Amino acid sequence: MTICEMKVGDTASVSKTISESDVYLFAGITGDHNPAHVNEESASRTMFGKRIAHGILSAGFISAVLAMKLPGPGTIYLGQDLKFKKPVYFGDTITAICTVTELLPEKNIAKLSTQCMNQAGAIVVDGTATVMPPKG
């Protein structure tokens, strides 16, 4: 979608169930092998009681919404403000939802609220994205 096709209130989402292999692949790609993510024994002694997914892995689903759905292919991701609200456990289904909150057509910039929720509806990631939609 171009900025002229977008309107405040437009929304899109993607969902994914987090698997153990997702977490291990992410750890391998990023080099973040924090025991909270990859070591069950160590993670059992944390405040979470078991392994959790990397927070930024969940936030990555926001990128999928922006790049593939709203505004979609050709979008340039300019910035993101994130707050990690709750842990994401292996087996959780995360839904990333992006909603257009502001359009600046003269600059070809859109701002969107961004949230990731688990299967219980709890917000696990909350934030705001700034993007440049594709040119028409």
Rank of each mutant, 00 (worst) to 15 (best):
K7Q: 14
V8E: 12
T11R: 13
T11P: 04
A12R: 13
S13F: 10
V14A: 12
T17P: 01
I18G: 03
S21Y: 06
V23D: 05
F26Q: 02
N34R: 06
P35H: 08
A36H: 00
V38R: 08
E40N: 04
E40G: 04
S44Q: 04
S44Y: 05
R45E: 14
M47G: 06
K50Y: 05
K50H: 05
A53T: 02
G55R: 01
I56V: 15
S58V: 06
G60Q: 02
I62A: 04
S63I: 08
S63D: 07
V65A: 08
A67Y: 04
M68R: 13
M68D: 10
M68F: 05
M68L: 13
P71L: 09
P71M: 10
Y77V: 01
L78M: 14
L78F: 02
K85G: 00
K85I: 03
K86L: 13
K86V: 08
G91V: 11
D92T: 04
T93M: 12
T93F: 09
T93L: 13
C98Q: 14
C98T: 12
C98W: 10
T99E: 09
V100P: 03
T101D: 02
E106L: 02
E106V: 04
K107N: 02
K111I: 13
S113I: 02
S113N: 09
S113L: 05
T114I: 02
T114S: 09
Q115M: 12
M117N: 00
Q119Y: 11
A120I: 00
A122T: 06
I123S: 03
V124A: 10
V125K: 00
G127V: 09
T130Y: 14
T130D: 09
V131Q: 08
M132D: 01
K135P: 00
G136N: 15
G136W: 15
